[in-house]
């Protein structure tokens, strides 16, 4: 999926001039992008625009030439099931469900992975022993890893990660990035990571400074 960004600016705050706002650029399949900026520059807004949660912007975003404002509610639902996956900055796990249930909830929409595959992913991020613990009892770093596994348990052409490793130690970041990169290259997907500064040793096609 090619994403065309045409001079978008949020309407509810005025961002400083940057490589992202008010510019024309595109995000291409199989490419990796880093969106780097200080807190409050609009990284999450940019992700919310791409994920269809917020349309308070001027300019246009197109997926394969189609303006995203023209998508209907059922079309967005399909996009979120099959084409775009996200790790929210706030994670948005269900605290009352276990780690595994949180992942299965997403996975059951498309039955993309088997439980064994999910557990294998959890093992790689060292959260497999927490599979049956309630999400609210996990540390934020552990929750972040669960949220990453959840994001991988669906088909996608665009993977949005909003400060996904902020509370994870370097060893686990390395595990997580290798898993993410494997998945992204397997699917020839577009990867967009938002970060406050750290680039996590990933070889990006382009870094956008917001």
């Amino acid at each position: 999926m090619t994403i065309q960004i045409q001079t978008i600016i949020p309407t509810y705050f005025t961002p400083a001039s940057s490589e992202g706002w008010s510019k024309v650029f595109s995000l291409k399949s199989g490419q990796k992008y880093l969106v780097k900026a200080a807190s409050g520059s609009g990284k999450s807004s940019f992700f919310n625009f791409l994920y269809g949660l917020n349309n308070k912007f001027t300019g246009a975003i197109q997926f394969d030439g189609k303006d995203i404002l023209s998508y209907t509610e059922p079309e967005w639902t399909q996009l979120r099931r099959k084409k775009i996956s996200i790790v929210f900055q706030g994670l948005r796990l269900f605290p009352e469900l276990t780690a595994l249930e949180n992942i299965q909830l997403k996975n059951q929409l498309t039955a993309h992975k088997t439980e064994a595959e999910i557990l294998a992913y959890m093992k790689r991020l060292d959260v497999d022993q927490l599979a049956h613990k309630q999400a609210e009892t996990l540390s934020y770093g552990q929750q972040q890893r669960v949220a990453i596994v959840r994001a991988l348990c669906q088909p996608f052409e665009l993977l949005l990660l909003d400060e996904p490793f902020s509370h994870i130690d370097d060893v686990q970041i390395a595990n997580a990035t290798s898993l993410i990169l494997e998945e992204v290259s397997q699917r020839n997907a577009t990867l967009v990571i938002a970060s406050l500064g750290n680039s996590y040793n990933i070889d990006y096609t382009k870094t956008l400074l917001l």
């Binding site: 990284k43 919310n48 269809g52 949660l53 917020n54 929210f88 706030g90």
Partner: peptide, 16 residues
């Protein structure tokens, strides 16, 4: 439910 999940009214749009 449509009102609650309408675009721009979500809990997430508060994240900048």
């Amino acid at each position: 439910i449509a009102q609650m999940t309408a675009v721009n009214t979500s809990l997430l749009t508060t994240e900048i």
